[in-house]
Design a protein around this nucleic acid. Structure first.
Length: 572
RNA sequence: CGGGAUGUGGCUCAGUUUGGUAGAGCGCUUCGUUCGGGACGAAGAGGUCGCAGGUUCAAAUCCUGUCAUCCCGACCA
């Protein structure tokens, strides 16, 4: 490809509406252009990256015996009614009507379509296991699309669905996909981590997310350095440190606490640590109002809370409504003598806090020496606390660390949730109809590209891993009018291209500085410079974008050197 | 949906407070000089100031409405 012909409009300045590096560089380097919020055109360079990632995904899926198909983006409402998700999915589902006023949606995911297909076309255990996948454009009317390809309303995703006869089969399929995902992200040159995850709205039992470690990530993960434990903080738990306190239970007393509201103020007022204080928050949920009690040094993990309550939502009640409901300021709520109709959920640490401080449900009054079991009891005791850095690992007690990550892949064991909803069955050896044990496995293709940039860039631009770079090499002709340089460039271009190397020849009538800047910005892994030295002593400069290393090679060696370098990164 | 902000040439932005002939830099076109890290000079092209109303002799500027975009939060296979 000649740079003079390549449609990759680069920008000198950073567009104002791009916040994070990957978005900025994709725009500046001419990879994408925005059409509407969260909707983008992939320009030639951007699309090449997308296709590279897709190809890696394809190869690894196929290796595991999966078969590619393509389902429609446009889906009839009936299927979604059958699974019950037409009503549940909410505003995120892009809905539309055809000319006959029939309801449709643009698929955010394809469990319904695939399950319906398999239900119709597969009927025997002999045809299982079945692994089917597609690489498709998905639609989600995100509340807030942002960060370019990171969170779009239209985006490309690989989704695979596994159908097995039993739990053991599902475990095997899940393991296959887990392994394939590891290979994929390794091949993409990403530093990633697989973490235990909450299965969210899609449902199901076991679930892992594949996170690319990056500060700009929207997910937060906890991991242990001593062992392999790692989990999304939504899911992460920690070992409870039970202190064998010899404290004697003291008498409950009510104390005037004028103006004392926050845990920090209580610590001061009573000269006690936050973990000696119990704080109480009021949530509105599907099950009614819920009071959540936990240690003063803890925060609520709303995902855990939602799961414990089996509620579709949990919303913190605002201060004014709390006053109406409890009759006191939010700073003085407590679990003792709370109204019967409020469900009391205590974090599992709460029973171990002896002689605690808590609100007295009267403004400016608190109880001292509160003890679980004697002074109050909860309807539910569960782990509902958010993990903090330094908490002990649930597996090995080592300290947990917290970091941010970009969720590029997510795998779920769905079990029979969808097969049961859609009555999708097969016959086993005994002629018994059984529901499929299903799994679903997604990879955000565009998001993976964005994550790669977040992890591989410098102040000059992108540093593509070879495996997903739009082109491997750029050849820069220093003097655009020099015929001899041009001849050498063209010869080199042909040699490399014949070897299967993907090359761009920058033949533009630009000063060399401009070419260097664009080469760095676009992020070609290798840059070959053909200039006066090439004419005089038959050498060219080869610069490795990643390391900045620059070598001078005889013209005759360039082809094989480049070939070796590139292929060393493409091992499959 | 709540809170905040912004819409002026392809890009970055000034001008709006105090209404009076629409600006700069970059990019683009042509010519010349340059030529190994985003050159310089000269001459050009390009804008219904997001859109619709209103106030006014006069609106980018004031008022009302509306749309879009971005940030924070809630949300999220």
């Amino acid at each position: 490809m000649k740079m003079s012909q390549l449609f990759s409009p680069t920008l000198r300045e950073t567009p104002a509406d791009a916040e994070i590096i990957s978005h900025q560089y994709m725009l500046r380097a001419g990879f994408i252009r925005k059409v509407a919020a969260g909707i983008y055109t992939y320009l030639p360079l951007g699309y090449r990256v997308i296709r590279k990632i897709e190809q890696i995904v394809r190869e690894e899926m196929n290796k595991k015996g999966a078969q590619e198909l393509l389902m429609p983006a446009l889906q009839p409402a009936e299927l979604w009614h059958e699974s019950g998700r037409w009503d549940i999915y909410g505003k995120e589902l892009m809905r539309l009507r055809d000319r006959h006023e029939r309801d449709f949606c643009l698929g955010p995911t394809h469990e319904e379509v695939i399950t319906d297909l398999v239900k119709r076309e597969v009927n025997s255990y002999r045809q299982l296991p079945l692994l089917l996948y597609q690489i498709q454009t998905k639609y989600r009317d995100e509340i807030r699309p942002r960060f370019g390809l990171m969170r779009g309303r239209e985006f490309i995703m690989k989704d695979l669905y596994s159908f097995d006869r039993d739990k053991e089969g599902l475990d095997e399929s899940y393991k296959k996909m887990y392994d394939a995902y590891c290979r994929i992200f390794e091949r993409c040159g990403l530093e990633y981590r697989s973490v235990e995850a909450d299965s969210g709205a899609i449902g199901g039992s076991s679930s892992h997310e594949f996170m690319v470690i990056a500060d700009s990530g929207e997910s937060v993960i906890a991991y242990c350095e001593n062992c392999d434990y790692a989990a999304n903080v939504e899911k992460a738990t920690f070992a409870m440190k039970v202190e064998n306190s010899k404290s004697v239970l003291q008498d409950l007393i009510k104390v005037e606490t004028p103006g004392v509201r926050t845990v920090a103020e209580l610590e001061q007022f009573f000269n006690l640590a936050a973990k000696q204080i119990l704080k109480t928050l009021i949530y509105e949920t599907e099950k009614g109002f819920v009071a959540v009690v936990l240690r003063g040094d803890r925060n609520v993990n709303e995902v855990k809370l939602q799961n414990v309550l089996d509620s579709k939502y949990v919303n913190l009640v605002n201060e004014d409504r709390v006053k109406e409901l409890i009759g006191c300021e939010v700073g003085s709520i407590g679990p003792v003598n709370l109204q019967e109709e409020i469900i009391l959920v205590a974090d599992r640490e709460v029973p171990y806090v002896l002689n605690a401080i808590c609100g007295a449900n009267e403004t400016n009054r608190h109880y001292q020496n509160v003890n679980y079991g004697r002074d109050f009891e909860a309807n539910i005791i569960e782990d509902i606390a958010l993990v903090e850095a330094g908490d002990p690992c649930p597996k090995c007690q080592g300290p947990l660390h917290i970091t941010r990550g970009i969720e590029v892949g997510h795998i779920f064991k769905l079990g029979t949730k969808y097969s049961a909803a859609l009555e999708a069955t097969f016959l086993d050896e005994d002629g018994q109809a059984r529901y499929y044990e299903m799994g679903c496995y997604g990879i955000g293709i565009g998001r993976t590209a964005a994550a790669a940039i977040e992890q591989n860039h410098d102040e000059h631009g992108i540093i593509w891993p070879v495996s997903i770079a739009p082109y491997h090499v750029v050849i820069i002709q220093v003097h655009d009018k020099e015929e001899k340089q041009k001849e050498i460039c063209e010869e080199l271009y042909n040699q490399l291209t014949d070897n299967g190397i993907e090359v761009v020849y920058d033949d533009r009538k630009e000063r060399v500085g401009v070419k260097f800047k664009d080469a760095d910005l676009i992020g070609f892994p290798l840059r070959i410079v053909v200039g006066p030295k090439t004419i005089n002593d038959g050498t060219v400069e080869v610069k490795i974008r990643k390391t900045g290393e620059q070598l001078v090679l005889p013209l005759t060696d360039v082809n094989s050197w480049v070939n070796n370098y590139i292929t060393s990164f493409l091992g499959k």
